[in-house]
C-alpha cells in the first residue's frame, strides 16, 4: 500500500514537473532543444517509473507508530527553529539547546543531555571557529 501511494505521489510530481517545464518562458536566444526539452524527458522517466511502482509495489516497510512519528515531527520542528533562530541567538546558545534536545530524545537523562548539548556546542565552536576559522553565526553575546 505504501508503494502505491508513493507511486501516485510520484506520478503527480511528474505531471506537475512536466506542466512547469512546458510553462518555462522561451528566451530570445534558444537552441534546438530549448530549456524545457530535458526536463520533459526527466518527467517522462519519473512518470514511467512511478507507474511501475504503482503496478508492482514492494512489501510495505515497517512504519513507526504514531508516537514515534510525532517524535520525528518534533525533531524537525526543533531543527527548523534552530535554523531560524541561529542568527538571533548566536551559534553557541542555539546549538547547545538543539543538541541537548536531540540527545534527550535519543535517550539520555536530563543532566546528561544538558552536558552533551553544552559539550558539543562548545566543542564544535572551539574546533571549527577558534581553530579552523569557520565563520559561525554571531549572537548578541558575540558568540
Amino acid at each position: 500500500m505504501s508503494d502505491r501511494i508513493f507511486g501516485v505521489v510520484g506520478l503527480l510530481l511528474a505531471i506537475g514537473f512536466a506542466l512547469a517545464a512546458l510553462n518555462i518562458e522561451e528566451s530570445f536566444l534558444s537552441d534546438a532543444v530549448g530549456p524545457s526539452g530535458f526536463p520533459l524527458i526527466v518527467a517522462a522517466v519519473l512518470a514511467l517509473s512511478s507507474i511501475v511502482i504503482v503496478v508492482k509495489p514492494d512489501r510495505a516497510p515497517h512504519w513507526p507508530s504514531l508516537g514515534r512519528l510525532a517524535e520525528l515531527l518534533a525533531a524537525v520542528v526543533v531543527m527548523v527553529l534552530y535554523a531560524e533562530l541561529l542568527p538571533t541567538l548566536g551559534f553557541v546558545i542555539a546549538t547547545a539547546f538543539a543538541a541537548a534536545y536531540l540527545s534527550w530524545r535519543l535517550g539520555s537523562g536530563i543532566l546528561a543531555s544538558i552536558l552533551t548539548g553544552i559539550g558539543s556546542s562548545v566543542g564544535i565552536y572551539v574546533i571549527f571557529h577558534l581553530i579552523f576559522g569557520l565563520s559561525l553565526a554571531r549572537g548578541p553575546l558575540g558568540f
Binding site: 531543527m79 541561529l86 546549538t95 538543539a98 543538541a99 540527545s103 558539543s120
Partner: peptide, 12 residues
C-alpha cells in the same frame, strides 16, 4: 545518543 546530536550539529 551522544554521537547523533553531534553529527546533526556538525552538518548544520
Amino acid at each position: 545518543r551522544i554521537l547523533m546530536p553531534i553529527v546533526a550539529m556538525v552538518s548544520f
